[in-house]
Amino acid sequence: MTDTATDPLQAGFDTTIGHGDRIEPRDWMPDGYRRTLVRQIAQHAHSEIIGMQPEGAWIGRAPSLRRKAILLAKVQDEAGHGLYLYSACETLGVSRGELTEKLISGAQKYSSIFNYPTLSYADVGTIGWLVDGAAICNQVPLCRTSFGPYGRAMIRICKEESFHQRQGYELLMTMMRGTEAQRAMVQESVNRFWWPALMMFGPPDDESPNSAQSMAWGIKRNSNDDLRQRFVDMSVPQAQALGVTFPDPELRWNAERGHHDFGQPDWDEFMQVVKGNGPCNTQRIAHRRKAHEEGAWVREAATAYAAKQAAAAHGQEGAA
C-alpha cells in the first residue's frame, strides 16, 4: 500500500472501504485493488461460461420435455451471468474480447469444478444442488463486496443461482422417488461431486495466498474454511431429506463446536486440476476456443454491417 497519510486519494478510498461503502468505477482506486478485482470478476465470468458446457452436454439428452426446458433455461441463465460479469469487468477498463482471449490462452482461470466430467443425467441435479449450492455460499457475501458493479451483478446472480439450486435438488428428489436404478444413479453422482464441491471454497486458509489482502479490501468477506464449514452444515440435512450419503467416513455432528466435523478433500488432486491436468481442462478450453474462432466471421460481419449503417446515416445527414 502507498503512504496513506500524505495521499488524499488513498485516504478517501480507505475511508470508503472503512465505512463499508461501495467503490464505483469513476472513483480512484489502488492499482492492486483494480487488478485483483479484474482477476476475480473475470475468473467468475469465465466460470459461468465454461460452466455452460458440463450441463449443456445433457440438454440434448434430457429425459423429459419439462426437464429439457428447465435445463436449457438454466444454461441460458449462465450465459446471462457471464454477460453481467463481463460487463462489470468492462467498467474496470478491460473488454470482453480481451478477457476471452485470456481465458482461451489459459492466462486466466475458471472454477476447477467444471473440469470434472458429467457422466449421467443425475449430474445435472447434483450440480444444481451441490455445485450451485457451494457457489451460493461463496457468492452471497459478494453481494456486499466493496466494488459497486460487482456487488450489484452478484445480487441478481445469487437470486438466479438459488433458483437453480432448488431445481437441481427437486430433480434429485424426483429421481429418488423413481426406480432403484435412478436412486443408484443419484448416489453415484453425489459420490463423485461431493469432494470437488468442497474444493470450490479454495485451499485451507493457511495455504490461501491472496485471501488476506482481498479481505482487507472488502473484496472478499469470509475465509475459505468458514464458508466450507457453512456449506457442509447446510448440506448434511439436505442429504438426509434426499436419502443419500456423502462419501466421508469422518463426517459427523460435533455438539461441542455446534458444527459438523468432516474430512479434507484430496488437495493433491485439487492442485493437479488447477494446474491443468484435470479430467476435462483441455476439452473445456478447446470447446470455448472452437466456438470463439468459428464465430469470428459472424462477429466481423456484424461489426462491418454496423459500420456501413453508421456511414450511410452519416452520409444522409451530410446531404441534408
Binding site: A69, A79, G80, G295
Partner: peptide, 29 residues
Amino acid sequence: LSQWTSRAPDLEEDIALANIALDLLGQAR
C-alpha cells in the same frame, strides 16, 4: 437449435437461440 448452446458466435446469440429453442419446445409439449 439447442445444440448451439455454448457454441454460438457470441453470448448474445447463445441466449437468443436458446430462447427460440425454448419457445418451440413449449409449443411442442
